[in-house]
Design a protein around this nucleic acid. Structure first.
Length: 822
DNA sequence: CACTCATTCCTTTTT
DNA sequence: GGAATGAGTG
């Protein structure tokens, strides 16, 4: 045991005895005996739980009991007498945070939560800290009522900025501009810093956009996702009050999925831990425990730096490293397949994966003809598991729907699987937590609410000002926008001046009728906000009531009610659903659980905490809906098969897993197979998928796949060839082995032997499917025609003489050409 | 100004 | 195959 010379609390295993801790807390929240905390732990797990002082890196392989270690560790700290409010655990998804909170609660009783344990996502924590300290942090344009812009808002704003700067979206694709800005912010480069480094022509223009984009954000009193991290890092660095408050409170830091942290997150973690600049870290290093697995780093494209975890020992020379390699999740065949695959990564520190579990079933690799066959195969496989069981005859052990899952690389692949499951009556859910809040009607309703919460929010105003149509069209808004920019005021303010001033104020050339429409709009918004005096009364109304009022009085609900289609009826229901979700939020909202509230022992969980004003409640609700993620919606209690992307699968486990679409261009994805590093990340993604499976795993590849409406010949993924023959079985559903080129080594399992001759040549002309001069084709619009000439390469075109429509040039990639002479 | 239909363009993963 | 923009009409 180390001796602790600092002023922090000293955990001591001897205090794990409940009798000695009784004096510290009330009898009801007395920690459980140490014996329970350690129950069933292996030696390395136990070491990770009890090594509480100083930096610790836990290298947790898949299925190694990581979550268990983290939750027991928190419980152990508390049982040692560390006040719960001094502990901060950071995760990447709300789901992970909720699960952790719940499991600690189950270990300790709910008292621990009430006493202020902080379990949060990075982004949510940053949002809370910024709100708490923004007003004193001297960030220009930022007050604590800021809005958070999500990806869609970000894109909309960049488009507006591009238009304003007269830059063509052909040369500056909004998406890639967003990506550049985002990448810069993840490296903690703000617009001036980026501009200073912009060397070439293109980057100098990006810098202009970046600058204007930042200006627009601050004018709207808004931050984007990346700002949450960047501004927090900057605030912790430069604002002593914020930094000290955090350091005083959180003595024990725990970070999950550390391999997925980016530079900004690394800096935030370091500043919270007390390492760099200023206040001294303890000589042996801070009480910072990071947990992760470099082999499961899959967010490099989002700025995650795998170096953060690989270099942890360099950053903290006194760090202790505890590897957890034993796998308690997967059958031995499955684990062996995963291990063999990941060994193909060269840029990697090897870690032994081992299990004492029985071999279980082999991994099944199935070659299908197309995506429909693939979906049917998965369906049949699921049905068999559900009816007959997973294991060999004699040990019937049915697998229920909720224990099955389908993983795919891109969301587009889910459609065919969905259709097939739906038609077969198999219950399924898609892990799309954000889908609800991305629906048009919900975004509109939230647009109104966001404007109410933050009258400077020009992006939200632009979204809703003429929805439903109220006679304030694009031309009008364009003029008011110009006026607003000249006056340097938010759009809503410019509209108000236009409406109030009978001479037309800033926009004298607007029609009287238009001005009246604007006046009605401004009055409506003011009716909800009470012009500063929130809600027009004492500011303590109900959130659900406000939401209801807004969707009613705005005419949004009436607009959809007037529609006759089923889709319109659904939208009305969704609006009602939004009201209930606001009500649920309102009921569950606990201001004392806010990590930015004072963590001091006295104030935490004070039952006398007054009900928060409606404005604060509204902002918290909007923050909540903005920061939900796809993975958050995964609810195993649903009794349904779960469909999700491989990225959403991280951290989960299922008894039966189907991974589809193992094809070149898809996994590894074509956009990610350029550099070796990208390719290795794709392999890790595949590794993550495989290691989610406990008992059964099927991996499929389709010979033909419809991409953008065009049936395309595919090449099986190189990852399939990297799986060890001894641990897989290959079957050829489609009877297509003869023309196969997917493997040229002999498979042990009677996988069809095949000659590779000819296939490579064929796959070389992918885009034309062998189309040549003289081929007879049918086009969706032009009808039947004969090919005159074909060009090759990317965006290959064909000159075609159509029987009815005459001669046309067709881009093969996009046209839906049907081959008639085969 | 609002709505409908046609054309164009694009496609990874997400806090 | 689908989203997003654009042209044309009421």
């Amino acid at each position: 045991m180390r001796t602790d010379v600092h002023t922090r609390a000293e955990p001591d295993p001897s205090k794990a005895d409940p009798h000695s801790t009784l004096a510290r807390g009330t009898p009801t929240d007395s920690p459980l005996p140490a014996a329970d905390i350690f129950a069933g732990l292996t030696d390395p797990q136990r070491r990770a739980v009890t090594y509480t002082e100083g930096p610790l890196l836990v290298l947790a392989g898949p299925g190694s009991g990581k979550t268990r270690v983290i939750t027991r560790r928190i419980a152990y700290l508390i049982s040692c007498g560390i006040p719960a409010w001094q502990i901060l655990a950071l995760t990447f998804t709300n789901k992970a945070a909720a699960e952790m909170r719940q499991r600690v609660g189950a270990l300790l009783g709910e008292g621990a939560i009430a006493r202020g344990l902080t379990v949060s996502t990075f982004h949510a924590l940053c949002a809370r800290l910024l709100r708490r300290f923004a007003d004193g942090a001297d960030i220009p344009g930022l007050t604590s009522s800021f809005a958070i812009y999500d990806g869609a808002d970000q894109l909309a704003l960049v488009k507006a900025v591009l238009a304003q700067l007269n830059l063509s979206t052909a040369n500056f694709q909004p998406r890639s501009v967003v990506a550049r800005i985002s990448a810069a912010k993840n490296e903690l480069l703000d617009a001036p810093a980026f501009a200073a480094r912009a060397g070439n022509f293109y980057d100098r223009h990006i810098a202009r956009v970046f600058t204007a984009y930042e200006h627009a954000l601050r004018t709207a009193c808004a931050v984007d996702f990346d700002d949450l991290l960047l501004l927090t890092a900057r605030m912790l660095r430069h604002t002593a009050a914020a930094r000290n408050a955090c350091r005083d409170r959180w003595q024990y830091l725990l970070i999950d999925e550390y391999q997925d942290t980016n530079h900004a997150q690394l800096v935030i973690a370091s500043l919270l831990a007390g390492a760099p600049d200023g206040s001294p870290a303890p000589p042996d290093g801070p009480n910072l425990c990071v947990v992760g697995d470099p082999d499961q780093s899959i967010y490099g494209w989002r700025g995650a730096d795998i170096g953060n975890i690989l270099e942890f020992e360099e950053q903290y020379p006194k760090a202790t490293v505890i590897p957890l390699g034993e796998n308690f999740r997967s059958g031995a065949h499955i684990l062996a397949a995963a291990d063999a695959l990941i060994r193909h990564n060269a840029l990697r520190k090897h870690k032994d994966l081992y299990t004492s579990r029985p071999p279980g079933e082999r991994v099944e690799v199935v070659l299908c003809n197309d995506e429909h066959d693939e979906a049917r195969l998965v369906l049949d496989w699921f049905r068999t598991l559900q009816e007959d069981g997973a294991t060999a005859p004699g040990a019937p052990d049915r697998i229920s729907w909720k224990d099955m899952t389908v993983f795919y690389r891109t969301n587009a692949l889910s459609r065919v699987i969905e259709d097939t499951l739906r038609n077969a009556g198999v219950p399924y859910v898609i892990a799309r937590g954000t889908a609800f809040y991305e629906r048009e009607e919900i975004r509109h309703a939230l647009g109104y609410l966001r404007l109410v919460a933050n009258p400077a929010d020009d992006v939200s105003l632009g979204r809703i000002v003429n929805t439903p149509a109220r006679g304030i069209g694009a031309a009008t808004i364009g003029r008011v926008e110009t006026a607003a920019a000249e006056l340097g005021v938010p759009l809503l303010e410019a509209l108000r001046r236009t409406a109030l001033d009978h001479a037309g104020g800033p926009t004298p050339d607007l029609a009287v009728r238009t001005r009246a429409a604007i006046a009605r709009f401004v009055r409506m918004i003011d009716g909800w906000t009470g012009r500063g005096a929130f809600m027009g009364h004492d500011g303590t109304g109900s959130l659900a009531g406000l939401v209801e009022r807004v969707i009613g009085e705005s005419g949004l609900e009436a607009m959809y009610r007037a529609g006759k289609t089923d889709a319109d009826a659904e939208r009305v229901e969704n609006l009602a659903e939004l009201v209930s979700s606001a009500r649920e939020f309102e009921v569950a909202f606990d201001p004392s659980a806010d990590p930015a509230s004072d963590g001091a022992p006295g104030s935490a969980a004070d039952p006398a905490t007054p009900r928060p004003p409606l404005a604060a409640l509204l902002r918290a609700f909007l923050e909540h809906v903005t920061l939900v993620s796809d993975a958050d919606s995964i609810d195993p209690a649903q009794g349904a098969v779960t469909l999700m992307t491989l990225h959403a699968a991280k951290g989960l486990e299922f008894r039966a897993v189907a991974m589809v679409g193992l094809e070149e261009g898809l996994l590894p994805h074509s956009r990610a197979s350029e550099s070796p590093a990208d390719l290795e990340e794709e392999r890790r993604l595949c590794f993550v998928g495989i290691t989610r499976a406990m008992e059964r795993l099927v991996i499929t590849t389709a010979r033909y796949r419809t991409i953008r409406g065009l049936s395309t010949r595919t090449i099986p993924s190189r990852f399939l060839r990297e799986l060890p023959p001894d641990h897989i079985t290959v079957s050829d559903q489609a009877g297509i082995a003869d023309s196969e080129d997917w493997s040229d080594d002999d498979r042990a399992q009677g996988g069809p032997t095949r000659s590779g001759a000819g296939s490579a040549r064929e796959s070389g002309r992918l885009s034309g499917s062998g189309l040549g001069t003289g081929s007879l084709v049918r086009h969706a619009q032009f009808g039947v025609g004969r090919v005159l000439t074909v060009t090759r390469g990317r965006d290959a075109r064909a000159r075609i003489l159509f029987r009815d429509a005459g001669e046309k040039t067709i881009v093969l990639e996009y046209a839906k050409l049907e081959r008639l002479d085969r």
